[in-house]
């Protein structure tokens, strides 16, 4: 069976869940080969988990140059692996993932598709476009299909693979070392789940009225084991960190449940949450556009509804 390359997303020594989703999707097309790229020592920690989700091979490319420069080194290493003509290359649909996919496509003369929400055994991708109004199925016509898949689109299913490790020589060209990463600043999001991967997201908007009131959203999120998101109005005002922004220019989420609190539902916000499986909104304005999307809507004052909801959930969870 042809091999399918899966670029491993990892953070703090563990693969992100989207990696398992990619490996699961890859099995539909052929034999998954995980590609671990990072600083020396990265692979040792993540390797075994990759085999649990079906990686037959684990390519390991370790070098300080990979994290030391932006995007280009990863695309370059993937291009050398692509010379073996894999059936496809799957990458997570993060901002960086889409850029790696694009550069790889140009390097090897292939097409690429971004933001897929599903992928079939022929490599045909499903995408949700125009803020979710249209569902498109597309395919790569030229070269090796390169597809980026949105987190939470495919259910990760474990299936043991051989996980045979193969070290790849990494020598990054001068051209790929143009953009130096001189500092990485991690802004703490505490112990809550990662926004793009969480199965429940609770987001607050301008209706929160100020940064101090985000504690209400956080308490509700914690009662559900959810991640916290925000609208641009809230991040711009500095009420909540910018990396929590959901929407067109923030992150795109597709959780099981999206709970919008004090958010009107502007088109740019909807672009980032419209593919959520279930949407619930709390807003005092019955005309707010967010209600058009909501499976369940509460018209009311969030300062009344949210604490009561949190209390009730906590009580029920006992």
């Amino acid at each position: 069976m042809a091999e399918v390359l899966v670029l491993v997303e990892h953070a703090d020594g563990t693969p992100k869940r989207v990696t398992y989703e990619l490996l699961t999707a890859a099995r539909r097309l052929g034999e998954p080969s995980a590609v671990v790229l990072g600083a020396p020592g990265t692979a040792a920690a993540v390797k075994d988990k990759l085999a649990e989700y079906g990686a037959e091979k684990v390519y390991v490319g370790e070098s300080d140059d990979i994290d030391g420069y932006l995007v280009a080194p990863k695309a370059e290493v993937l291009a050398t692996l692509a010379a073996k003509r894999p059936a496809a290359v799957l990458i997570a649909s993060s901002a960086e993932g889409k850029e790696i996919a694009g550069r790889l496509a140009v390097k090897i003369g292939s097409g690429f598709l971004t933001d897929a929400v599903d992928l079939d055994e022929h490599g045909t991708a499903t995408q949700s476009v125009f803020g979710g109004a249209t569902v498109v199925r597309s395919r790569v016509k030229i070269g090796i299909p390169i597809v980026t898949l949105r987190p939470n689109s495919v259910e990760a299913v474990a299936q043991p693979g051989a996980g045979a490790e193969e070290t790849i020589e990494v020598s990054i060209s001068a051209a790929a070392k143009g953009a130096r990463v001189v500092d990485r600043v991690i802004e703490d999001t505490g112990s809550r789940p990662d926004l793009t991967e969480a199965s429940i997201v609770v987001s607050g908007g301008r209706g929160m009225g100020g940064p101090e009131n985000f504690a209400l959203v956080e308490k509700l999120a914690d009662s559900l084991g959810a991640a916290v998101g925000a609208s641009r109005a809230a991040t711009d005002a500095g009420w909540y960190p910018h990396q929590s922004q959901v929407g067109q220019t923030g992150v795109t989420v597709s959780p099981q449940l999206y709970l919008a609190v004090g958010i009107s539902g502007a088109i740019q916000h909807r672009a980032g949450m419209q593919t959520s499986k279930m949407i619930v909104a709390i807003n005092k304005d019955a005309e707010a556009p967010i209600f058009e999307l909501a499976d369940f809507g509460v018209v009311g004052d969030l300062f009344q509804v949210v604490p009561q909801l949190t209390e009730e959930i906590t009580k029920r969870k006992g």
Partner: peptide, 26 residues
């Protein structure tokens, strides 16, 4: 290098349930 094979308007979301908070919204 890539093509749209087919497209369909997304089935409209089922109109959700909406309630007005009468003190027990939560």
């Amino acid at each position: 290098t890539s093509e749209v094979v087919e497209f369909t308007p997304r089935p409209p979301r089922q109109t959700g349930q909406m309630i007005k908070d009468e003190g027990d919204g939560g």
